[in-house]
C-alpha cells in the first residue's frame, strides 16, 4: 500500500543516540521547571509553602533521574540496537509533516477547511484512492462534523475566511 520500499534495511539512528537525546530533553525540562520555581519563590512563607516549593523539588527529582538515565546509557556502550530504520522513520514523518502543517493552518483557515485538506492529502498520498472517494470522504466527514458540533451541540470550533464568506 505504501508503494515505497522500506529504505535500505539495516540503516538508521542508533537507539543509544535517541535515548541520550530524550534524557537531555528531560534534563532541559527540569532546568526550566527549576528556573520557573525560583522565580515564584521556593521557601516556606507565613501561610505555608510558596508556589514554587513543590515544582522546585519536582524539578530536582527530574534532574537527578535524567542524570542517572544519561549515565546508564553512556556506560552501556555495548548495545548496537537500532532505534528504527530510516525507512520506518520516513513513514512516521509522512504522518508528522502533514499533521504539523494542519495544526499550523487551523488558526488561519479554520478547522473545517484544514481538515478537508488533511483527510484528502492522507487518502491521496498514503492511500492512493481515486478523487471521487477522496472528496466524498473528506467533505462528507467535515459536513457531518459541522452539523453535529455547531448545530446540534452548539460547540463553536475555529472558523476561517471560508466560513465567514458562507455566513456560517
Amino acid at each position: 500500500m505504501t508503494g515505497q520500499s522500506n529504505g535500505a534495511s539495516g540503516a538508521g539512528p542508533s537507539h543509544r543516540s535517541v535515548e541520550i537525546g530524550v534524557a537531555l530533553l528531560t534534563l532541559v525540562f527540569s532546568l526550566i521547571v527549576i528556573g520557573g520555581s525560583l522565580q515564584v519563590g521556593i521557601d516556606w512563607a507565613f501561610d505555608g509553602p510558596r508556589a514554587g516549593f513543590f515544582p522546585f523539588y519536582l524539578g530536582l527529582l527530574i534532574l537527578m533521574s535524567s542524570l542517572v538515565n544519561l549515565f546508564q546509557i553512556i556506560m552501556d556502550g555495548k548495545t548496537q540496537r537500532l532505534f528504527a530504520e530510516w525507512g520506518q522513520l520516513g513513514q512516521v514523518l509522512r504522518v508528522v509533516v502533514p499533521s504539523t502543517v494542519y495544526v499550523v493552518l487551523v488558526p488561519y483557515i479554520g478547522i473545517y477547511a484544514a481538515s478537508i485538506l488533511l483527510i484528502a492529502v492522507f487518502m491521496k498520498w498514503l492511500g492512493r484512492y481515486g478523487w471521487t472517494l477522496v472528496l466524498a470522504v473528506s467533505i462528507g466527514t467535515i459536513v457531518i462534523t459541522f452539523i453535529v458540533f455547531e448545530k446540534w451541540f452548539l460547540v463553536p470550533l475555529p472558523k476561517g475566511p471560508i466560513e465567514e464568506l458562507l455566513g456560517l
Binding site: M1, S99, Y102, V103, I111, M123, Y129, T145, V155, L157
Partner: peptide
C-alpha cells in the same frame, strides 16, 4: 489511510475544545 486522518481531525477538535485554544492543538 482513511481512518487515521479522521482520528487526527477528531483529536484536534477534542484538544481545541478543552479551552477553545489553538495553542492546545
Amino acid at each position: 489511510s482513511i481512518i487515521a486522518p479522521i482520528i487526527l481531525v477528531y483529536c484536534a477538535i477534542g484538544a481545541y475544545s478543552v479551552h477553545n485554544s489553538n495553542f492546545d492543538v
